[in-house]
Every structure is written in structure tokens, then in C-alpha cells.
């Protein structure tokens, strides 16, 4: 698990922090999903993104270009996942 704890900057943790809230609603481990950043077009696993979690929602940013690739907001009875910063979301097919 990587993070910038101790740095003189806003705190971030790695994309594994998204596993809980997303797994809970989607019933699958999304940290192995891959996202293609709309900013720099590189593809990385969700676990590699930097997640700013001291905010009104979870904000995942590309570690390459810093752009936002995903925002997750939890409200009463719903979780909203905004993916406008991503071009492609790819998921492994579960092995039966």
C-alpha cells in the first residue's frame, strides 16, 4: 500500500482504498480493473491510482499526469461513480 503520508501536501493513498466502497456495491474486486486516463491515455490498474480521500468524496488521480480519472461519492442509499476522466474501464472475467 503506497501513500504520501508525512509529505507537506494533501494526503493521498493508493487505489486499494477504492476496493471497499466499490466492491461493496459492485460485488467484485475492482482494484484489478484497469482504467485508461483521458488526460494522458495511459492504462493502469485502479490500485495504481492516487486516491485523495480527505474530501467530500473519493478522488482518484492518474499518477502519470495528475488528472482525475474517477470520483466516488456516497450519498444516502446510493453511490455515484463519475468516470468522465477515463476513456476505458476494463475488467477481468471471473473464472468460473
Amino acid at each position: 500500500m503506497s501513500t504520501n503520508i508525512g509529505a507537506d501536501d494533501a494526503l493521498w493513498v493508493d487505489g486499494n482504498a477504492l476496493a471497499g466502497p466499490l466492491g461493496e456495491i459492485m460485488g467484485t474486486d475492482l482494484t484489478v480493473a484497469e482504467l485508461t486516463c483521458a488526460g494522458c491515455r495511459t492504462t493502469r490498474p485502479l490500485a495504481a491510482m492516487r486516491v485523495f480521500d480527505r474530501a467530500p468524496g473519493l478522488v482518484a488521480r492518474c499518477p502519470g499526469c495528475g488528472e482525475v480519472v474517477m470520483r466516488v461519492v456516497r450519498m444516502a442509499g446510493r453511490v455515484l461513480v463519475d468516470l468522465r476522466g477515463s476513456l476505458v474501464l476494463s475488467l477481468p472475467v471471473p473464472v468460473a
Binding site: 474530501a55 467530500p56 495528475g66
Partner: peptide, 9 residues
């Protein structure tokens, strides 16, 4: 005075 931030400062 909690610090909330959606990205690097």
C-alpha cells in the same frame, strides 16, 4: 480546521 483536498496543494 480540517483540511479537505481533492488533489495536490
Amino acid at each position: 480546521f480540517p483540511v479537505l483536498s481533492a488533489g495536490p496543494t
